[in-house]
Design a binder for these strands. Sequence first.
RNA 1: GGGUGAUUAGCUCAGUUGGCUAGAGCACUUCUCUUACAAAGAAGGGGUCACUGGUUCGAGUCCAGUAUCACCCACCA
Length: 874
Amino acid sequence: MKELPKIYVPQEVEAEIYARWEASGFFNPDNISSSETYCNVLPPPNANGELHIGHASGYTVMDIFGRYNRMNGKKTLLLPGKDHAGIQTQVVFEKKLQAETGKTRQEIGREEFYKKTYAFCLDRAGYMRNQEKKIGLGADWSREKFTLDPDVLKSALETFVKMHEAGLIYKGKRIINWCPRCATALSEVEVLHKDTPGKLYFIKYPLENSEEFVTVATTRPETMLGDTAVAINPKDERFKNLVGKNAILPLQNTVIPIIADHRIDLAFGTGAVKITPAHDPLDWEIGQDHQLAEIQIINEEALITELGGKYAGMTAHEAREEIIKDLEKLNLLEKIEDLPHSVSICERCKTTIEPLTSSQWFINVDSLKKQAIQAIENGEIEIFPGNFKKILIDWFDNLRDWCISRQIWWGPQFPVWYCDKCGQEKYVVSLEKPTTCPHCGGKNLTQDENTFDTWFTSGQWAYTTLQSHGNDFENFYPSANDKKKHTMMVMGRDLLFFWSSRMIMMSLYATGQVPFRNLFFTGLVRDKDGHKFSKSRGNGIDPLTMIDKFGADALRMSLIMDSAPGQDSRLYGEKIETFRNFANKLWNISRYCLTQEGFELVEEIEEDDIKSIADRWIIDYLNVTISGINKLFEAKQISVAADVLKSFTWDSFADGYIEVSKIEKNQKVLGYVLDKLLRMWHPFMPFITEHIWTIADKKDLLIISKWPTPLPQKENETWSDFPFLQTIIKSVRNVRKEKNIEITKKIELYIETSSEILKAAIVANEEFIKKSTNSSSIKYNEILIGGFIQRVIGECIIKIPLEGLIDTEKETAKAEKEIANLENFIAGLSGRLSNQEFVSKAPAQVISQQQETLAKKQTELAELKKHLKSLIPN
RNA sequence: GGGUGAUUAGCUCAGUUGGCUAGAGCACUUCUCUUACAAAGAAGGGGUCACUGGUUCGAGUCCAGUAUCACCCACCA
């Protein structure tokens, strides 16, 4: 017998429980012996801030699968880490530096800036690690990695060297997305598009040696300073005779050709387009094909270059104003129209992107994407939800070469070396600084200043982490025949293109294998109104605050319940509260059990231990529940699994079995069911279950206890009577309650039924019913004289003699309503059963089932009508 | 322009392969602090499953189309 508080207080126990888990060493797979492994290399959050609700959501899913697999006896590794997050961290740290010291990164210099940022990241990583522990993440901290750890980085850079040798890497001057604020090139995924109101300017370009004009339309008139052609569609009848002629570029007064190109849209603007190869991606492509010159008139600070003549030094915006004025003076501005169009902005700092031509490093993705598509199509990776497979394949199909060089300071530098004599054209690729230049023998070599795109290193995370620790790669990474190796990746759906795609390409290239067999996407967590959480909106829910308020288990449950993979979900305080309440329910269920005399958690049960019909029912129902949950786990349907478990716990165990067990005790069955419940709840609510486990004097930790297996199902049909008996008991109890009959007062039950089966069930459990309802006797099909209350339960009527307590009006209304309901249902059912087509085409099983139901309901209706009749006074 | 998802009770959402009268939580109404639990229990109200067709004996579930919303992608200058 124990004394336990009425309310579970997570704040008092969670930290201590986590410390015990950690001390046990079972988060480290080396301490688990098994021939099977389970591995989830965790997505590394950016080491520059703190945990947000999206991290909490992902970690909950990863931890649920991790704990489930650990309990299923697999050597389980959740490998944690942090990402240096190049551009984002540089943005964050520059702001911090400015705020704290008033200095810019240029003022403290590259080396100092790098050192300080590194220290900052390590500090944040430590802080975030503690937050991760608070949500219960069962990761092996002894293996924690950072993307810039020397061993991790080395294998990532080796891939660069290998790719370069294979000819997949090239350096070239191409048009790229340039962020003037971050002062770096960006890949296509790092650019967002924002619909913005804008203007379309119609500008007249005079034709050479002519009085005529060709009018072009543009949203960015300032770029005309760098125009090197005017293009029209070859099918365009309006301009057919202009092709091959020249136009005079106003303001610059240069002669530019009029060319024909199929990429020009006849329907847009005037049909004639100014071509600025240096500052527009499409123009650049057209320029390449027509060998047009590239004139860079906007520099990397978004200012007009000296090639822009009198506009040099202006910002692009200022230049636009001036150019419009000047064109008006020259009478070359035909008109201005409103045109909403999409503006490219930097994903990290939201600054408007300037397309520029620039010398950058690229990966040729042609072969990589083919391999990736093949692996996905062959099912080498199973994707949850399934429809994301198509989205990913489509994306790969349209993927262009990947710009991997960035001009920021924070990140690993390219292992590329230049000699002062050979210049930028010839270079050496090598992890170590070469002593001499292989081209000229020069001794003075300097490293390429570019840093890698963050996704280049994090795209290799699945194996660079495993390769840096013992035999982890062999033990955990997928291989050709890996039935015993289970691998999982979980990430938010927003990382589909950024990360999952890169991981698949890079891993296939570097290891010849997919990085994981299962890829699970979580949806985004939104606020109550469906908005994204954002700093500017100020609608964020801090996971740590929620844990402090409601407990980690409640937060975890609220993040996974009622949600489907890839589908966004909403989170708000009240929702978390309901799971806090559920945790408390589980606490009180356990509290009831644990305070029973002689109660203990029971691991195994014998057939002889099952005594009553209630025992039989709960045990068999538990078996069904266990099998169901196992199936759901295999299908990665954890939300549904938790839902099934929840209704078993609350409706069947608490409201059903425990109520019965107060009358007829069987501690062994009670202990067996609770034991299984705690195990199955553990992945979802690890803290409270471990806490109860400890209180119940279990010596081993719940984290490594065995996941339940269903008992072999016995050939025994009687348990199916239980819900019926339970309904009888409940209704009698409700009558007592309604009529305020003291619990100690004995009553008599009269039962009328024409169903032999039901009668047999009642007779067989007469003592049980009598005890449960505190009745002195049960009489069958006897005539009852005097006042009584009756209830119709299925095909039988229960009558309780209670003279003077009957509310005829109320009872009549209730009966009439039920009769109407039933008649309606019977009409539908019998209509279907008399339909020749249904009878001839539906499966026999369905027909007999429905016939059975119809018969039952008809009897029930008859009983109800009898009941109603007896209510009406003669 | 292309794609994806959503549309089920007042709100937030489940609904696994089409099959007994469509579920949960919150909110609402009425009652109960009954010794596991008022963070609970009991009883109850509330839904032509967006719309229109189709397939089927049978559709919330499958197919086609429509509408509304959300998101993603795209080189319309």
